[in-house]
């Protein structure tokens, strides 16, 4: 029931819609996940997803909101790394939703 079908491939999701196997991620999978959230990914979204994937590659964990803002500001500048911008892009829950679309595990310490 919680599977995602991308190019005839069935991809397992957990009960919150996060990838069960992070290796399943691809840009196409991200687009399909976004569609489930009624979201169309633009370049503004993609640069954040890229930043998130870098964060995960570096620190091996998914950031809560505050570190996401800080890291984004560090990488893309304060006009991108701020809470209104990220909230607007990701329906008000950037840490959770962006992590989901970027193929990261559910953020720890994110309440």
């Amino acid at each position: 029931m919680n599977d995602l079908t991308v190019d005839d491939r069935s991809i397992a999701l957990d009960k919150d819609g996060f990838l069960v196997d992070l290796n399943d991620w691809s840009p196409e999978v991200a687009e399909a996940l976004a569609q489930r959230e009624q979201l169309l990914l633009t370049s503004d979204h993609w640069e954040i997803l890229d930043v998130l994937r870098d964060f995960y590659a570096q620190y091996q964990l998914a950031p809560a909101t505050r570190p996401l803002i800080k890291y984004t500001a560090l990488r893309l500048g304060p006009e991108k790394g701020n809470s209104p911008h990220l909230n607007r892009l990701f329906n008000g829950t950037p840490a959770k939703l962006a992590a989901k679309l970027a193929g990261l595990p559910k953020p720890t310490n994110c309440i």
Binding site: F55, Q58, Y59, Q60, L61, P63, A64, R66, P67, Y71
Partner: peptide, 15 residues
């Protein structure tokens, strides 16, 4: 096991 040293490096990002 998970990479604790990598996780620890995120501390400054968490303030």
């Amino acid at each position: 096991q998970k990479n604790l040293a990598a996780n620890l490096q995120a501390l400054p990002m968490f303030g």
